[in-house]
């Protein structure tokens, strides 16, 4: 009996917090179908009293959502692919090869994880200017092509590959490139999925660097474009809700479709082990 009460209370609490967690999204969505007058009124309800899709029409007229969404998607996917590859390669070399200075190199890489991004942003900006990369996508992609976190994570992961397996392949005449692409990469599948998810979410969330680098509005990423839109139409609350919904909903759908991979990727990653 006591068990049962405990279980009901537990379920109730979980459900309550679950609702609380998604409430902001529900409210955002419902407000995006309200008129400005209703949004500002003293009487609030979750169901729009006067349902309108005018806000979305306004937003689509002034906010090239599809373009920014595709920019962001391509950017995040590209960064994810590159860092998976570079992190695994570097993790493999640092984890499985023995050479002088290996430990030192690894320690240095780890130290860079602790340097606040803002320290390096100022000189990086000058470097990009020197290279003439401002307002280009390589300015976004090249500086993110290696990540200390990824290298750290993949180095730990390579420990799970037995040396004997690699040596056996080597004796069979496999060269290191073959070994890396055909044995190491497939073996680290699970860790790669987790890294990919982290990396994708971070790239999707990126704000300051893309904001500083990209000038041409058509090349903007979604976060930056959204912030710009919100600055321009700061008094049109209903349109702001619509724009924000448009920016968030696809991510939520994407997440709901792949949620199993998202969550399991994170929880099965080596960092939790």
């Amino acid at each position: 009996m006591k068990q049962k009460v405990y279980s009901v209370v537990l379920k109730g609490t979980l459900l309550f917090f679950g609702l609380l967690t998604i409430l902001p999204f529900v409210w955002m969505l419902s407000s995006s179908f309200k008129t400005n007058i209703e949004i500002r009124s003293n009487v609030q309800s979750f169901i729009p009293q006067q349902f309108t899709i005018q806000n979305y029409a306004n937003v689509l007229e002034h906010f090239n959502f599809l373009r920014y969404f595709i920019n962001s998607l391509l950017y995040a996917l590209l960064i994810t692919l590159i860092t998976i590859y570079t992190s695994t390669a570097a993790g493999f070399v640092l984890g499985k090869y023995r050479f002088k200075g290996r430990q030192l190199l690894f320690t240095c890489i780890l130290l860079t994880m602790m340097v606040p991004g803002i320290v390096t942003i100022i000189p990086r900006y000058s470097i990009m200017q020197f290279l003439g990369w401002i307002d280009t996508y390589q300015a976004l992609i090249v500086p993110s092509s290696f990540t200390a976190f990824g290298i750290f994570m993949m180095r730990q992961a390579t420990f799970s590959i037995p040396d004997e397996m690699l040596d056996a392949a080597r004796i069979d005449g496999a060269n290191e490139f073959y070994l890396f692409h055909r044995i190491v990469l497939p073996q680290l599948r699970n860790s790669i999925v987790s890294l990919a998810i982290f990396q994708f979410l971070w790239a999707w969330d990126d704000y300051l660097w893309p904001y500083l680098m990209i000038r041409t509005e058509k090349k903007s990423l979604l976060s930056v474009a959204l912030n710009l839109f919100n600055g321009r139409y700061s008094t049109d609350y209903a349109s702001l809700f619509a724009a924000t919904s448009i920016a968030i909903i696809p991510v939520i759908i994407f997440y709901l479709v792949f949620q199993k991979h998202f969550i399991e990727g994170v929880s099965s990653s080596s960092i939790t082990g």
Binding site: P24, S223, N230, T244
Partner: peptide, 17 residues
């Protein structure tokens, strides 16, 4: 899925909400 939802949404967007 519910609890993880806020984590995956971009900060700039949810900060506005």
């Amino acid at each position: 899925t519910l609890y993880y939802l806020p984590t995956i949404t971009p900060m700039v967007a949810v900060a506005f909400v």
